[in-house]
Amino acid sequence: MSGMRSYGDPCGVARGLDIIGERWALLVVRDLLLGPRRFNDLLGGLPGVSPNVLSQRLRQLTEHGVVHRRDLGPPTRVHLYELTEWGRALEPILLQFGRWGSQSPQSPEGTLGIDSLLLSIKAAFDPARAPELAGSYAFHIDADTYLADVADETVQIRRGPASEPDATLTTDIGTLRAVCGQEITMAAAVKSGALRLSGDEDARRRLTDLLLAPFTPAPQPAAH
């Protein structure tokens, strides 16, 4: 398919790598986990990839049944790329891989995109905290909207409009990175006007706790 190389090994690991082992393939899947995206959106979220390589990876993933291309037709003539049901089965694998990769001793390079920031919430979510964080929360980040629903010991996050969320956060990606990176506190961002929170006080607190959980250092045991 599309000239892809094969390991020629019947092991499930090798067969999986035949499909998603090419450079950029897994990152394309990552950026589709929260919902469909247009080609230019994917290109913007993967700053190191060329349009030709991205087109090739999308074509290969589509041929293998991991990604589906949906044509919206006139007058928009826009193509949306989304994961198939089989493609979505990669989510727990990618989240676990992200947990493993975050422990790398190498210093991180580059900046986290909005999808990566929100997927960090899913990767770090503690099911035991679901009762105290339960609710529906909207994130308006630049021109994109995301909805996080916490219920039944899980958090589900998707790209798209939110209907009457309990609390809403509105900001830009730069401010969000600064807050999550602990370069500025949430309170300071709100005071400056760079970030807005709406909803009742308890819902705003739950949204804040949910957002910052992956980026809050775990308490260290007391020395004896």
Rank of each mutant, 00 (worst) to 15 (best):
L54C: 08
D126K: 07
S163N: 13
L26C: 10
V28K: 03
L54N: 01
P75H: 09
H140I: 09
A213H: 14
A143S: 13
N52Q: 13
Q106I: 03
A138H: 02
E63H: 11
R99Q: 13
I141Q: 06
G110H: 12
C11P: 06
E201H: 08
A134L: 00
P10T: 05
D202H: 12
V150Q: 07
P74S: 14
D149N: 09
R38I: 06
E85Y: 09
S136F: 01
T145G: 05
L169R: 02
L27V: 11
G35I: 04
L94D: 00
N40S: 14
G87L: 03
A128R: 15
L197I: 01
L42G: 01
V155M: 01
S6Q: 13
V29D: 03
R30V: 11
D166P: 03
I184R: 15
L169Q: 03
P75I: 10
W24A: 02
P165V: 01
L54Q: 03
L207W: 11
A187Y: 09
D144V: 02
A130F: 11
D152W: 00
T171N: 05
T76D: 15
V53T: 14
P131I: 03
G181W: 04
P161I: 01
P165S: 02
P131Q: 03
A223M: 11
G3T: 08
R59E: 15
G48K: 10
F39N: 05
Y137E: 10
G21R: 12
R5M: 14
R15A: 10
W86M: 10
E164P: 07
L34C: 10
A218C: 02
P217F: 06
P219R: 15
G48M: 05
V150K: 01
A213I: 01
Q103G: 06
R206Q: 06
V13R: 14
E85S: 10
R205N: 02
D202W: 05
W100R: 09
A138Y: 06
G98M: 03
D172N: 15
T208G: 11
A138V: 02
R159N: 02
L33K: 04
A213N: 04
L169S: 01
A128H: 06
L211I: 08
L147R: 08
L119R: 11
S192V: 03
I121Y: 01
E91T: 04
Q182A: 11
A138L: 07
R177S: 01
D149P: 00
G12Q: 13
F97K: 08
S192G: 12
F125N: 12
S55R: 15
I20D: 01
L27Y: 03
A124R: 02
Q96D: 11
I173F: 00
A187M: 09
G199W: 02
Y81V: 05
A123K: 01
A213S: 15
T208A: 11
L212F: 00
L197M: 04
G21W: 12
A89R: 15
S107P: 07
G193T: 02
P219A: 15
G45Y: 00
R38C: 10
H224T: 13
